Simulated assay, not measured.
Amino acid sequence: MDKDTHLEDSDSLTQNGIIDSIGLLELIDYITEKYSIEIPEEMLTPENFDTLQGISNMIQKLAK
Protein backbone atom coordinates (compact mmCIF):
# COMPACT_ATOMS: atom_id res chain seq x y z
CA MET A 1 0.00 0.00 0.00
CA ASP A 2 1.28 3.42 -0.93
CA LYS A 3 2.01 5.61 2.11
CA ASP A 4 -0.10 8.37 0.57
CA THR A 5 -3.16 6.12 0.32
CA HIS A 6 -5.97 7.11 2.67
CA LEU A 7 -8.03 4.18 3.93
CA GLU A 8 -11.39 4.58 5.62
CA ASP A 9 -12.66 2.06 8.19
CA SER A 10 -15.35 0.90 5.76
CA ASP A 11 -13.16 0.63 2.63
CA SER A 12 -12.89 -2.86 1.12
CA LEU A 13 -9.40 -4.24 1.60
CA THR A 14 -9.81 -6.77 -1.20
CA GLN A 15 -11.46 -4.49 -3.75
CA ASN A 16 -8.79 -1.84 -3.17
CA GLY A 17 -6.03 -4.41 -3.72
CA ILE A 18 -4.67 -4.04 -0.20
CA ILE A 19 -5.00 -7.70 0.76
CA ASP A 20 -5.17 -10.92 -1.22
CA SER A 21 -5.84 -14.52 -0.17
CA ILE A 22 -2.29 -15.09 1.12
CA GLY A 23 -2.40 -11.77 2.96
CA LEU A 24 -5.68 -12.81 4.52
CA LEU A 25 -4.11 -15.99 5.90
CA GLU A 26 -1.22 -13.96 7.30
CA LEU A 27 -3.69 -11.51 8.85
CA ILE A 28 -5.60 -14.32 10.54
CA ASP A 29 -2.35 -15.73 11.99
CA TYR A 30 -1.33 -12.27 13.18
CA ILE A 31 -4.67 -11.61 14.88
CA THR A 32 -4.71 -14.97 16.67
CA GLU A 33 -1.17 -14.45 17.96
CA LYS A 34 -1.45 -10.74 18.79
CA TYR A 35 -4.75 -11.01 20.69
CA SER A 36 -4.39 -14.62 21.91
CA ILE A 37 -7.75 -15.58 20.44
CA GLU A 38 -9.01 -18.40 18.26
CA ILE A 39 -11.21 -17.42 15.36
CA PRO A 40 -14.04 -19.93 14.92
CA GLU A 41 -14.60 -21.21 11.40
CA GLU A 42 -18.05 -19.61 11.24
CA MET A 43 -16.43 -16.18 11.75
CA LEU A 44 -14.13 -16.55 8.74
CA THR A 45 -16.44 -14.47 6.55
CA PRO A 46 -15.89 -11.53 4.21
CA GLU A 47 -17.87 -9.31 6.58
CA ASN A 48 -15.28 -9.93 9.31
CA PHE A 49 -12.16 -9.46 7.17
CA ASP A 50 -12.88 -7.15 4.24
CA THR A 51 -12.83 -3.85 6.16
CA LEU A 52 -10.92 -2.45 9.10
CA GLN A 53 -14.25 -1.97 10.90
CA GLY A 54 -15.20 -5.63 10.35
CA ILE A 55 -11.83 -6.81 11.67
CA SER A 56 -12.08 -4.54 14.70
CA ASN A 57 -15.65 -5.65 15.50
CA MET A 58 -14.69 -9.31 15.27
CA ILE A 59 -11.64 -8.90 17.53
CA GLN A 60 -13.73 -7.04 20.10
CA LYS A 61 -16.34 -9.83 20.14
CA LEU A 62 -13.74 -12.57 20.54
CA ALA A 63 -11.53 -10.78 23.07
CA LYS A 64 -14.30 -10.48 25.66
Rank of each mutant, 00 (worst) to 15 (best):
K3R: 09
K3Q: 05
D4A: 11
L7D: 00
E8T: 06
E8S: 15
D9K: 02
D11F: 02
D11L: 01
T14K: 09
N16R: 05
N16C: 01
G17T: 07
G17Y: 02
G17E: 03
I18C: 03
I19F: 02
I19Q: 04
D20G: 11
D20E: 11
S21W: 10
I22F: 09
G23D: 09
G23P: 03
L24M: 15
L25Y: 09
E26C: 07
E26F: 05
E26A: 15
L27C: 12
L27E: 08
I28K: 10
I28Y: 09
Y30C: 13
I31D: 06
T32P: 02
K34E: 15
K34D: 12
K34Y: 08
K34N: 13
Y35V: 13
Y35G: 12
Y35N: 13
S36G: 05
I37N: 09
P40D: 04
P40A: 14
P40Q: 07
E41F: 13
E42H: 14
E42A: 15
M43W: 08
T45Q: 09
T45V: 11
P46S: 15
P46Y: 09
P46T: 08
D50C: 04
D50M: 02
D50W: 01
Q53T: 06
G54R: 01
S56T: 04
S56K: 12
S56A: 07
N57I: 02
M58G: 11
Q60C: 05
Q60N: 13
Q60L: 10
K61W: 03
K61F: 08
A63C: 07
K64W: 00
